[in-house]
């Protein structure tokens, strides 16, 4: 790997050593990253899955507009989310009284807002496909609107797990929004992506690459776990 147009080579081996040494600062950064992103993913799931499933199984005025909007919001630029949230959470903003700016909570909210449209839109698509398949059977069993949402979410649980993973991946890889609303405070709101940005700016490329490897490894481990879960489910749950 060539850096800065010169002949200098980044030593990936020493980058890995740094990571594998289990440095407590590094572990705390990785831990905070996971806490923030897992919490944001679960919060977005708690809102996005029921909402997506409701839109999928209901007919009402403005439904098409909501679907178009959800699909459009999937591409929400993180920096814009970060900036809007920054202005809202700032002491001079409408939600300033909560004192959430530059806290992990602000980062969780930012990531939740960022991936909520993704989870809701993909859930809507997945559940609508299932609904086409199940509609007659569930109607014949006289399952009501709430019951069918719960049934379809359960029936689509493996597809939904993949959707949550997509959301998790996007949230974990994001840097712009958490940098703005978290402030990248050492030991408090510094996560993997903001550390990578910071260490790169300090010319500390080994550590940046090392953290990059951890981030990629994490996302890959979680993907593999989900894939294994799906494979297992295909064999056992039909």
């Amino acid at each position: 790997m060539q850096v800065n147009g010169s002949t200098r080579i980044v030593d990936v081996g020493s980058a890995l050593d740094l990571v594998l040494s289990g440095d407590p600062t590094l572990l705390r950064i990785v831990g905070l990253s996971l806490t923030v992103t897992v919490t944001a993913t679960l919060a977005a799931a708690a809102i996005g899955i029921p909402f997506g499933a409701f839109v999928a199984t209901s007919r009402f005025r403005g439904r098409s507009a909501i679907i178009v909007m959800l699909n459009a919001l999937m591409g929400l630029p993180p920096v814009v989310v970060g900036l809007a949230l920054f202005l809202a959470l700032s002491r001079s903003g409408p939600l300033g009284g909560f004192g959430l700016l530059f806290t992990p909570s602000a980062m969780i909210i930012a990531q939740t807002l960022l991936i909520l449209p993704i989870i809701a839109a993909l859930t809507r698509q997945a559940i609508e496909d299932l609904w086409l398949e199940y509609a007659h059977e569930l109607t014949a069993m006289q399952i009501g609107p709430i019951g069918r949402i719960m049934t379809l979410v359960y029936e689509g649980r493996f597809a939904l797990a993949t959707i949550l993973l997509a959301g998790f991946g996007r949230a974990a890889a994001e840097v712009g929004a958490v940098m703005i609303v978290g402030g990248n405070i050492d030991g408090f709101t510094r996560v993997m992506t903001t550390t990578i940005a910071l260490e790169t700016s300090k010319g500390n490329l080994e550590l940046a690459i090392g953290l990059g490897i951890v981030l990629i490894a994490l996302v890959m481990v979680i993907n593999a776990a989900t894939w294994a879960l799906r494979a297992w489910a295909d064999r056992h749950a039909g």
């Binding site: 398949e133 199940y134 007659h136 059977e137 014949a140 049934t151 029936e155 749950a237 039909g238």
Partner: peptide
């Protein structure tokens, strides 16, 4: 139904 939908 002719092709009943089994729950997973």
């Amino acid at each position: 139904f002719q092709r009943p939908v089994m729950l997973k």
